[in-house]
């Protein structure tokens, strides 16, 4: 369920002022960050390993090389090969719905493991764009993408959507479960707020819009949910915390075996 951001609205109405300030923050002790993905497509098997860094540093994160990364299922293991600094891939290994996969990452004497089950896919039926109320800051009409699908009533389903405008990825995490939509024909609006007024994020006519629909393992949905609400730094949550993860061994990040489908349209 989405809630309206009344705090943001209130701040707008009160004409509150904002300023970047220096703060004393707790010291950073580097932690491993593992982002591991296995999909139903060849080339979709990818693991990125990096580390946390101090808040004051820049946003260039160098990968961690020298790790041994394997994904196994039903007794057969696939080893991923490094393709860049901290990037490990397998060009042909695909996952299949219903199977459970185990990830093992060994790096610098530490071992991190996780398990993820790829759910049965729900068909991505339609992608379209509709106008919202109002305009973007650049004057263009506010438009949103809608993803249409028929949610199966017999099982719980968890989704994530990734939106690209002219191949530029929207950073908002779009997730949905079926608690309020179970068994229904769903038209999910991919709502986002262009909080940094970057014109490239707006959906405008003539642009190419791509949306990926990911059917998620419930534990991975919980990862994205808690990441979005607890670790984004927005200051609204009274108790920010690291997200719930399926990785054991003390690393940040997740391992997701998901089913991916995508659609691309030209915005009229």
């Amino acid at each position: 369920m989405k809630n309206i951001n009344y705090i943001a609205l209130l701040l707008l109405l009160l004409n509150s002022c904002e300023k970047a300030i220096d703060l004393k923050l707790p010291d950073n002790t580097p932690k491993y960050v593992i982002e591991a993905v296995l999909t139903n497509e060849a080339g979709g098997c990818r693991v990125a390993i990096s580390q946390t860094k101090a808040f004051t540093g820049d946003n260039t994160f160098t990968g961690v090389s020298g790790a041994t990364v394997t994904i196994s299922s039903n007794g057969s293991a696939q080893t991923l090969t490094p393709t860049g600094t901290g990037i490990y891939q397998h060009s042909t290994f695909k996952g299949a719905p219903g199977n459970t996969y185990q990830l093992t990452v060994q790096v610098d004497g530490k071992t991190f493991t996780a398990s993820s089950a790829m759910p049965q896919p729900v068909a991505f039926d339609s992608l379209y764009v509709k106008k919202g109320e109002g305009n973007n800051k650049d004057g263009s009409p506010l438009q949103y993408a809608f993803a249409g699908y028929n949610d199966p009533g017999s099982v719980k389903n968890f989704y994530r959507f990734v939106q690209y405008v002219n191949n530029k990825k929207e950073k908002t995490v779009f997730i949905a479960d079926d608690e309020f939509t179970n068994g229904n024909s769903v038209n999910n609006r991919l709502s986002f707020s262009n909080d940094n007024d970057d014109p490239a994020r707006n959906i405008k006519s003539g642009e190419q819009l791509t949306v990926e629909m990911l059917c998620l393992d419930p534990v991975v949905y919980q990862y994205w949910y808690s990441l979005k609400n607890g670790a984004g730094g927005d200051g609204n949550n009274a108790a920010p915390s690291n997200p719930d993860t399926n990785l054991s061994g003390g690393a940040l990040g997740y391992f997701s075996a998901h089913f991916i489908q995508r659609k691309t349209i030209l915005v009229l």
């Binding site: 707790p26 960050v33 984004g232 915390s241």
Partner: peptide, 18 residues
């Protein structure tokens, strides 16, 4: 609770809390 550090997931910045 202020962050002790930061990291990237899917190209976006997130914060590490201790």
């Amino acid at each position: 609770t202020f962050p002790a550090g930061k990291y990237q997931i899917d190209g976006s910045t997130y914060y590490n809390y201790t």
